[in-house]
């Protein structure tokens, strides 16, 4: 029971500290903005560890975070191989292809108001669909290796980025377009100097949505067949063979990969759209 009380005591103490920080004048500093959520996250881990130990939960059902960490450290080779297969080969390649295709398509259809009005509602609708379901079809078309995962990702990220880019390109105000006309600016000059920069917040919004979708697509597609490596493969076989701590280690990798990928895109966004009201300091 010591574990349970210890965990609960830690929870209470952490909450108290956070409450004090949130009520104190330092709450708007960068440090406080990092410390408070981190402390909260650690609390969750401690609670998890405490509950698992206190009630002696079978590791087949739910391993403690410490056990997961041990497995993680012991199987970095496997984890790295799976990471390369799923994230770098499957998700990243699909993300790059899908994002570029969506971007080019958006710029092409933007020139025609007819096409824009036709494609925008359809794109919006398709972006809300459970596109992951096409995974088995893509595995059938492109084989078991990463190409089929990439294909699923391409389709999944295409529509959110397309819709956001098209909307972003319409963002430039009529007045600013008129200004470009009084300068006698060409279509290309208006696009590069006005409309693309104005569209950037929207484009990044689409890219951020797409980062998560890319990982989801790559992992699900592996449930439908893959070579004997990959995070989705390891998770589905690990669940079957009851090596649950390895599954949790893979989940940790997936979570980390997702967060870092999102973080990188958000970091670039901050650099590119520093001028947007939502990014200003």
């Amino acid at each position: 029971m010591i574990w349970l009380w210890g965990a609960l005591a830690f929870w209470a103490a952490a909450w108290f500290v956070n409450a004090r920080i949130a009520a104190s004048p330092v709450r708007d500093t960068k440090g406080a903005r990092i410390v408070v959520p981190v402390l909260f996250g650690i609390t969750l881990l401690v609670l998890w560890e405490g509950l698992v130990r206190a009630f002696a939960v079978s590791p087949v059902i739910l391993p403690a975070p410490s056990a997961v960490a041990q497995t993680f450290a012991a199987s970095t080779t496997i984890l790295w191989e799976d990471f390369r297969q799923t994230v770098i080969k499957g998700a990243m390649s699909g993300f790059a292809i899908g994002a570029s295709a969506a971007f080019v398509t958006a710029i092409l259809i933007d020139r025609s108001s007819f096409l824009t009005r036709g494609l925008l509602p359809i794109g919006n609708f398709v972006a809300a669909l459970p596109i992951v379901g096409i995974a088995p079809i893509m595995v059938n078309w492109f084989g078991f290796d990463w190409q089929s995962k990439s294909a699923v990702v391409v389709v999944m990220v295409f529509f959110p980025i397309l819709v956001n880019t098209v909307q972003g390109l319409r963002e430039a105000e009529a007045m600013q377009r008129d200004l470009m006309r009084t300068y006698g600016a060409s279509y290309l000059q208006t696009l590069v100097k006005l409309r693309l920069p104005a569209a950037m917040p929207f484009i990044f919004n689409g890219l951020k949505i797409a980062t998560t979708l890319a990982l989801i697509g790559a992992i699900v597609a592996e449930y439908f067949g893959s070579p004997t490596r990959g995070m989705g493969f390891r998770i589905s076989t690990g669940v079957g063979s009851l090596s649950i701590d390895l599954v949790w280690a893979e989940i940790a990798v997936a979570a980390l990969a997702g967060t870092v990928f999102y973080g990188i895109v958000a970091w670039i966004e901050k650099r590119v759209t520093f001028w947007h009201p939502s990014q200003r300091r």
């Binding site: 600013q176 009084t182 300068y183 000059q189 100097k193 920069p197």
Partner: peptide, 28 residues
Amino acid sequence: RAYGYVFQAAGLYPWRTIAGNVKLPLEI
């Protein structure tokens, strides 16, 4: 390039500095 047009809203590009904004027509 006979016209300089000034609108009610300044309509400066938020992603360009003041110098960059003034430079815009010159670049074009």
